[in-house]
Write a protein that binds this DNA or RNA. Structure first.
Lengths: 139, 139
DNA sequence: CTAGGATCTAGAGTCGGCTCTAGGTCAACC
DNA sequence: GGTTGACCTAGAGCCGACTCTAGATCCTAG
């Protein structure tokens, strides 16, 4: 047993969450953090695993396009403790719909790309083969 | 045979592409349109099916997160005509990677949502059943 | 002939989400 | 005890992608 309950500086928290220290402070100001970040005697932030875990959730939600205000609302519900599961569920389900829609759009885009890329590949193949092609046609 | 080669006003083009007239003009200024939009004698834009089709491609690419400058570059290649298929392919493949990455992130987010939503549903089920639960435990 | 609505241009404004700056504190090492 | 580097706050700045405004023009219907 060694690194139980690690106390992380903001720089270390930034490393593990993939955010910049600027963004970590910004998210805190924006009220996205579930629990207030501890401070050391010098006034510096001290992050615990729980904080990192929650921030990671935020990062995933953001990456899926959830706007900061929505994440904030969700955070507030979590902060408020049990008893509001229905509202949390509503929020999550709403976002799930948006995520599903996005996947659909991405699939459409992928189809488009594959279609167009296929066309270009064909054109390039045509150009690559011909050293013999026209002669072959005569035989 | 009636509506062959329809000539659309910007308002009609907006309807069919789902963009606003403002955005249509903006995209044009930004150089996203493959061919210059025709004008009627009064100086108004006239859109043809080809234009709408190309704009639709742009919309799909945008919806998948391709930045305007990338769409512009692609448009320029298309505008330049054949002979640059390799470059187009490179652009499309780069974007395909980003799209695939995004789908991955969305999947991760969906997992998270399903996991959390599942927890909340369980909590709510617990609350919904119990009218008899504690008494049952005594038998 | 005029009133209304769609269109035009150039340019300003908005919004979300960071990102950075200035000016200061603090801890640690040489 | 001086220097370096991570950290602090408050607030300004930036970027992408629209979105809107003002003031003019043009077409159509009444």
């Amino acid at each position: 047993m060694s690194d139980v309950a690690p106390r992380l500086s903001i720089g270390e928290a930034a490393e593990r969450t993939g955010l910049s220290v600027h963004t970590l402070r910004f998210y805190e100001r924006e009220g996205l953090l579930a629990s207030p970040i501890q401070r050391d005697p010098g006034g510096r932030r001290v992050y615990h695993q729980d904080d990192v875990d929650w921030i990671t959730v935020c990062v995933i939600l953001r990456a899926s396009g959830m706007p900061l205000p929505a994440i904030r609302r969700y955070t507030e519900l979590v902060r408020a403790g049990g008893g509001n599961e229905t509202e949390r569920l509503v929020l999550l389900r709403e976002h799930r719909e948006r995520v599903v829609d996005q996947m659909d759009q991405l699939r459409k885009c992928l189809d488009l790309i594959n279609f167009k890329a296929g066309m270009y590949e064909d054109v390039l193949d045509q150009l690559a083969v011909p050293p013999a092609t026209s002669a072959d046609a005569d035989r």
